[in-house]
């Protein structure tokens, strides 16, 4: 079951490369949250129930509901609907994404380890690369924020892999969500405009 969820997760990542609208990005983030919640429930069989309940509910409430809701509000408020790529048509991004997947699979195969299975490692690495690609190839700072959320999901996935032996690592990884909160507050509290293309006041 976990493997099916991981493959579904990988499909959402491929979708990121071809999507053109911010609203789809946000939905994908929500779906990824849901999938991670499912992976956590199926994967973490050895940890105690209270901890599992905490992890699953945190993932469901924060990653699946709260963050996508806040992002929806930002996008609705700003009126920006399309993502803006930096001189990078969607097709090339898709090609890069496929290369990233290929590299992830090769890397995962060369890093065989008793504590993490290969498919887990491959998709977690692919998530990391996709997040980085989103940040590098997009102009809008809201796209950068979504890129960071994808990287955060990658980290969470890695932490689930060792979660049975080291549950403390997952709980600590959840602290990263605090940063997501601060970043989103950057939009709300500090009135940062999501449609700003570049932040260039500070330069040499």
């Amino acid at each position: 079951m976990v493997n099916y969820l991981i493959v579904l997760f990988a499909i959402t990542l491929m979708y990121f490369s071809s999507a053109e609208r911010l609203i789809i990005y946000i939905r994908l983030i929500g779906i990824q949250g849901l999938l991670l919640c499912g992976i956590a429930i199926f994967e973490l069989k050895e940890i105690n129930s209270a901890n599992l309940l905490f992890i699953a509910s945190e993932t469901l409430i924060f990653k699946t509901i709260l963050i996508p809701y806040l992002l929806f509000r930002i996008v609705n408020h700003s009126g920006v609907s399309k993502v803006s790529r930096q001189a990078m048509p969607g097709f090339y991004l898709l090609i890069l994404s496929i290369f990233a997947l290929l590299i992830s699979v090769i890397l995962a195969n060369s890093l065989v380890n008793p504590y993490i299975n290969t498919i887990y490692m491959a998709i977690a690495l692919f998530t990391l690369f996709t997040g980085m690609l989103l940040i590098v190839t997009h102009k809008l700072i809201i796209s950068h924020l979504i890129g960071f959320l994808v990287i955060e999901n990658s980290v969470f996935m890695f932490s689930l892999a060792v979660g049975n032996k080291m549950p403390m690592l997952i709980n600590i990884g959840i602290l990263l969500d605090i940063f997501v909160g601060v970043l989103i507050l950057g939009f709300f509290g500090l009135r940062l405009k999501p449609h700003i293309n570049e932040l260039t006041t500070l330069k040499d």
Partner: peptide, 21 residues
């Protein structure tokens, strides 16, 4: 600062996870 530090912190955490593996 917060954005780049967050990415840095996430990457450092990945390093810790690799130690975990």
């Amino acid at each position: 600062y917060v954005f780049i530090c967050s990415i840095g912190i996430a990457l450092a955490y990945l390093g810790i996870l690799f130690l975990g593996f």
